[in-house]
């Protein structure tokens, strides 16, 4: 297994108390796997993605373990984590439009970044240019300031920078949300190409746009209110979802046209629980048509078929 996450728990510290943004996350990703990570906004998917590489305050590590290629990542210690960032774990941020220093030429910025990490820019330059060709960016961009690039160009540039040192794990956070439909598709396909060219080993694609995941993800992990709901190969998630939440999520997306799970789900009455003081037991309980007394206990995240994990008592019952 390329990535193993065990019982990962991260809170947001606020004056009003801890927001339980991510609790007891346990899952694995195989070598070469592209995993989609989806759910409504505020479900903790971005928290999960970021916790694997950098925790900005007010995010705080509470518990859990992350193993990448068998090595434990010190994600609670930002200083020690620096050694792994960029080289082993890397991030394509949601804010790719503003991710580059506006007053440095892009090439110069890359050079300063690489040298600060002890990498010789001149040695990397030929590979950098090859990758620019791959994403159809002219070599001239290295001599430009970010403001001179279009949105799509900046997005591709950041993708090239983030994957430049061939990280084992690449986290792509909502990278398509700021782009138009045509560009979205191209960018998504480039991600697959990066994997196929072995620039990166595994990838986590965080998005609220499930239709993108149909195209590129090998597996999909669905989150709800700070906990994992279901993880399965893409095909299974689409054709035979098991968690009641996933089922409603998938069925509320009529065909491929509509993509935004982000808008409050009209098909599911009620709202997700507030994560400041989350209820005990299954967090989907209040909105679940199948809920029964067992759901007052928190369901574990169990493998019910090969590679198909789900956190739902009803499912365990029918498989028992």
């Amino acid at each position: 297994m390329a990535l193993k996450v065990e019982n990962l728990t991260v809170y947001y510290q606020t004056l009003r108390g801890d927001v339980h943004a991510l609790e007891h996350a346990t899952f694995q990703i195989a070598d070469g796997e592209i995993m989609g990570l989806a759910g409504e906004s505020g479900c903790g998917k971005t928290t999960l993605g970021h916790s694997l590489i950098v925790l900005f305050p007010p995010m705080k590590y509470i518990a859990g373990k992350v193993l990448l290629d068998g090595e434990e990542l010190p994600i609670w210690d930002s200083e020690r984590m620096n050694a792994y960032r960029f080289r082993k774990v890397s991030l394509i941020p949601q804010y790719a439009m503003n991710a580059m220093n506006p007053i440095r030429k892009i090439g110069k910025m890359i050079q300063e970044l690489l040298e600060s990490r002890g990498v010789d820019y001149r040695e990397v330059l030929p590979e950098l240019k090859r990758r620019l060709d791959l994403v159809s960016l002219s070599h001239e961009v290295l001599n430009m300031y970010p403001i001179e690039l279009s949105g799509g160009m900046k997005q591709r540039m950041v993708m090239v920078i983030s994957s430049l040192l061939n990280p084992s794990l690449l986290i792509a956070d909502e990278i398509t949300s700021a782009l138009d439909v045509a560009t979205q598709k191209a960018v998504a396909e480039m991600l697959v190409e990066f994997r196929d060219c072995q620039f990166v080993n595994t990838m986590i694609v965080v998005t609220h746009d499930i239709s993108i995941l149909y195209q590129i993800a090998d597996s999909i992990l669905i989150m709800y209110a700070g906990v994992l709901a279901e993880k399965a190969p893409t095909q299974s998630i689409i054709e035979s979802p098991r968690h009641p939440y996933t089922r409603m999520l998938i069925s509320s997306l009529p065909e491929v046209g509509v993509r935004h799970a982000d808008k409050r789900l009209s098909g599911i009455p009620g709202n997700p629980p507030l994560l400041l003081n989350p209820p005990t037991g299954c967090r989907f309980r209040d909105r679940c048509p199948l809920a029964y007394e067992r759901c007052l206990e928190e369901p574990p995240f169990l493998e019910i078929e090969k590679d198909h994990y789900v956190a739902c008592w009803k499912e365990f019952e029918s498989h028992a």
């Binding site: 950098v54 900005f56 050694a83 792994y84 960029f86 890397s90 804010y95 991710a99 990490r117």
Partner: peptide, 8 residues
């Protein structure tokens, strides 16, 4: 933030 994420 991006630079921090890349371990600068």
């Amino acid at each position: 933030r991006y630079l921090t994420a890349l371990g600068a």
